[in-house]
Design a binder for these strands. Structure first.
Length: 290
DNA sequence: CACTTGACCTGTCCGC
DNA sequence: TGCGGACAGGTCAAGT
């Protein structure tokens, strides 16, 4: 679920609470990668030095020069419950953000020396946490093959244009969902970006004009920046065990807006399937390929 | 090689 | 109410 804006919102939110905290204990209820041995030898007793993000991956740097990498995939959540009961949560929106934890979706629990607890919840078990030496993080295959961050200068029109032309037969939506093209764009922001650029998601990448590629490049930057600005689509703020949401989806142009009017022309939004994913388009603003 | 589909999991919603 | 199937904001591996 979480795309770049959601993960960035989680990073910013968690940073102020967990940086400097010492991990007293880790309880692994289920894990794909992180093992009890790793936790015992390189996590417990360490202090959190920093919290970074690369695309949709959260990187928790520890004082012993190891890092914990977290990928939330579709349904992952990070929920911080402070010793006084208040909480801070981000990820897939479910009731468990406000429920008593651990619950049946809780996979890993980090307990801090001061009494705060950080829960990694993930209903579908697609997400993971793994441990790597910090020096290997950026070159590891998990993040080393990711394309440029959309909000940095690394994401150039020239580079984007080259990648688009390299996949002439793929629907353009598939190209921008590919994390090696531009990292951090997922299904929501792909639909939003394509609508802003007035490009139909099923158009073959090779059929796009230079002007269209330029519009899409700009649209991706605009849409991702707006997502970060709004705190993502699904986010429980730091409030008394209540939760609440990031408000991006309230302002979504097309995503999840089936049958609602297009914000540009008023035509009802339709839902189709492109590149194996549910896809929302305005049939008037985004001309279907023939 | 380029591109598409299935698999990974659990849960929910929708039609019969 | 029960049951089957489709689908869910991600990413790989395997298939055509």
């Amino acid at each position: 679920m979480p795309e770049l804006p959601e993960v960035e919102t989680i990073r910013i939110g968690l940073s102020q609470y967990i940086i400097g905290q010492t991990i007293k204990d880790v309880d692994i209820l289920w894990s794909k990668f992180l093992s009890v041995e790793q936790v015992n030898s390189a996590v417990i007793g360490q202090t959190i030095k920093g919290l970074e993000r690369r695309a949709k991956v959260l990187i928790i740097a520890l004082s012993n020069d190891y890092s914990l990498l977290v990928h939330l995939k579709m349904t992952g959540q990070m929920v911080l419950v402070l010793a006084d009961g208040e909480r801070f949560a981000g990820g897939h929106p479910t009731d468990s953000m406000a429920a008593d934890l651990p619950d049946k979706s809780t996979r890993i629990v980090f307990a801090f020396a001061g009494g705060d607890k950080l829960y990694f919840n993930d209903q579908r078990k697609f997400g993971w946490i793994q441990l790597l030496p910090t020096v290997e993080v950026l070159t590891h295959e998990l993040v080393g093959r990711l394309g440029p961050e959309p909000l940095t200068n690394d994401f150039t029109l020239t580079g984007f244009s080259k990648v688009v032309k390299r996949h002439p037969g793929s629907p353009i939506k598939a190209v921008i969902l590919d994390q090696s093209t531009v990292s951090g764009v997922g299904n929501i922001y792909a639909d939003e970006s394509l609508h802003l650029a007035k490009i139909h998601p099923a158009v073959k990448a090779g059929d796009l004009s230079g002007a269209q590629i330029k519009r899409l490049h700009a649209a991706i930057k605009t849409i991702i920046a707006a997502g970060v600005e709004h705190g993502g689509t699904s986010f429980a703020h730091y409030v008394n065990a209540l939760g609440g949401k990031g408000d991006y989806l309230d302002n979504a142009r097309v995503f999840n807006q089936t049958d609602k009017p297009c914000p540009v022309c008023g035509t009802p939004i339709i839902k189709i399937r492109v590149a194996g994913r549910g896809t929302h388009v305005c049939p008037k603003c985004q001309k279907a390929p023939r």
